[in-house]
Design a binder for these strands. Sequence first.
DNA 1: GCATGTGAATGGATTCACAGCT
DNA 2: AGCTGTGAATCCATTCACATGC
Lengths: 221, 221
Amino acid sequence: MATRPNGNEPISEMTTGRLSVYLRCLTYLESANKLTVSSAELADRFHLNSAQIRKDLACFGEFGTRGVGYNVAHLKDALVHELGLDRMRKILIVGAGNLGMALADYRGFNERGFHIVGMVDIDPEKFGKTSRSGIPVLPWDQMPQLVRRNDVEIGILAVGTDSAQDAYDGLVDAGVRAILNFAPVQMRSHRGVKVRSVDLRINLESLSFYLKSVEDGIALE
Amino acid sequence: MATRPNGNEPISEMTTGRLSVYLRCLTYLESANKLTVSSAELADRFHLNSAQIRKDLACFGEFGTRGVGYNVAHLKDALVHELGLDRMRKILIVGAGNLGMALADYRGFNERGFHIVGMVDIDPEKFGKTSRSGIPVLPWDQMPQLVRRNDVEIGILAVGTDSAQDAYDGLVDAGVRAILNFAPVQMRSHRGVKVRSVDLRINLESLSFYLKSVEDGIALE
DNA sequence: GCATGTGAATGGATTCACAGCT
DNA sequence: AGCTGTGAATCCATTCACATGC
């Protein structure tokens, strides 16, 4: 059971994003045999304020020891638990193009807490093929069965703009409640389904804007 | 020249991110032969507030007509210009693994405003190979010349965690001032260089947190 | 009348500053 | 002495509401 003092306080998305970052750092510190770490130390590593880190961590209990700091192993375990990573979640990738294939083999997608069960595609040419690491491509038609049999909880949309909404709707129908979307579209959303979008184009354009600002002599940053 | 009323007001990153989204929508509306669009209409398409859209657009001039809305073609051109997309920016990808290869062929990276000149890698096995669409892999050693000769302005880090900092430092030395980073690390940053990070693992963990919250009966969303 | 542009109000996240514990 | 946990203060983004202009 969680050591959370108050089970229904809402933890912001900003905070949980940083928890992931802290967790990564703690994993490193643990492997470096560091026993304890202070919020100030963590704040240095990223460009953050130490009070913010303390606030983030305080969301689900009192983990630190005053005068000392946080126990690395302890805090790491707590974060793993809070993020729900102490249990395996199955992933299905929709779209076996370049991006889908690359994601299938991406380290970190098949690490602690996650396991990719396969890819699906509508192109019969691709059926039976596998990614380099051996993740198979199956027919989109079989998606509902795949989801049910393997208890897939997360869907990754690596399809083109045109197919994204259909793929999304299909996954939701099949019972998937969390989606990582790489298609550059704002989809009509379903209630009770979490969608996170990674829009590569927006990131590039943001860099372009920065470069232009520099050219124009407008000091940013 | 920009129609910007006041050249040195700082436009927030939140805003520029949305400008990209608006631009995409306008491109669509233009292709659908729509002549004019209102902030309320745009607000519906995304889940946004119309006032926010007007504020965003007002950052660099008065583009709308009261009682009518915004001229689609006009506004689109203005956004293209403001985002600096009316000029070609060259991209170099560092790391020719699965991800680098997938990114090299990603539509939208070789579209309006951007052009990928190549990939570099340290693995001699990969030299001379190309992505499916023909983007070549060259030796990392040649990176500085490549950057200079091709006027590369943007670097994409598609390398592993261990090499990320070195690759970053190298690109900056060679004169690159904008970086899109896919490695899951917080890098020691250089002044005057813009880095945007896409952390796939954090996105997955955020979904995991959502799923766990649902399991625990904590209503999110 | 209708939709923009914008000051004022709100809401949320970050930072400050310090009380409290070890 | 040192560092956590947290109310108070600050900062920034979003939303409201309305005056302004077509």
